[in-house]
Design a protein around this nucleic acid. Structure first.
Lengths: 158, 158
DNA sequence: ATATTCCCTATAAAGTTTATAGGGAATTAC
DNA sequence: GTAATTCCCTATAAACTTTATAGGGAATAT
């Protein structure tokens, strides 16, 4: 299960826009500025920002002093929104939504496992907002998770 | 985030082997039998089963009356093991492990969000075993998740 | 011996992700 | 009203991953 480059780039761009928003909610930032700071290929970032714009998360203006800024408060933009826009559904099975799968026989309950995984992922990504990430004030649930023993280390157990 | 066809096929094959194991732990099932029941392309399934065999989850024998059977008890094989063998790490960011990412500035805490997601996914996939899925005796945590309102419906909130 | 069944390497087909190119349209500044 | 700036849009390419397929080799049972 992979978080795409597009989502990672998009999140970083949005976090830069959040920083900018918290300093001055009216001011805009250009694609070029974000691309330089975050070291993201300009044309790729352009298409990412356009998707975020068309979904209503950010707001654009052309011309001199143009650029992008957040269209909502940073507290009203979750990680889940960004993933769904740039990467599609949080969890897919063979490219389809988990609830669309039909299993038979001994595999009958497999679907429930995929659904449970989706619930778990939703509980993280739908709860965390740009504001929390930018300010470092992550929810208690997240803090608890990242403080767990082994959270930061690879697990190879087979 | 996608559960690959390989993982889905592998899980279904293993669940069929589990059913077989619970009836008679010595008996073997051929690739062809599994492919027919589960409707999986034979040659693709062959390569999946070989990976599971080389990782020690199943056990093979050639020749007449040959085939595959589980190499461990169904209670000792988790979904996480299968995903790691067939799909790689449970969560990757831009193809790399989340802990290998370095973020700066306002994106500094982004890594913690990815790590928290990995913890959440681990808590599901490392806990659920073939035995639980085959018998329908899923852990309470899973049951609670799939009974949650909205667990089975798509979420479009942007 | 022969039939069966897994083992292995190489390769192809399809699909997705990650870009890149090039020009168009709006906006501002002068 | 002209030039500079900046986002907008479509098409395409490059790279990579996933999903297979082909063909023959090696072990096993009878």
């Amino acid at each position: 299960m992979n978080i795409s480059a597009a989502t990672d780039y998009g999140m970083r761009a949005l976090l830069q826009l959040t920083e900018n928003y918290l300093a001055n909610p009216e001011e805009r930032v250009t694609v070029l500025e974000i691309a330089e700071v975050q070291k993201i290929p300009v044309k790729f970032l352009e298409s990412i920002l356009r998707q975020l714009q068309q979904s209503g998360l950010i707001n654009s203006k052309r011309g001199a002093n143009g650029g992008y800024r957040l269209a909502r408060k940073p507290k009203e933009i979750s990680v889940a929104m960004v993933i769904r826009i740039l990467d599609g559904p949080l969890i897919a099975v063979k490219g389809e939504k988990p609830e669309d799968h039909k299993y038979t026989g001994s595999a009958g309950n497999l679907q429930e496992v995929w659904i449970a995984a989706r619930v778990a992922v939703r509980e993280i990504f739908e709860e965390v907002t740009l504001h929390q990430i930018a300010t470092g004030a992550l929810p208690a649930k997240i803090k608890r998770a990242i403080d767990q023993p082994g959270a930061w280390t690879r697990r190879l157990t087979i």
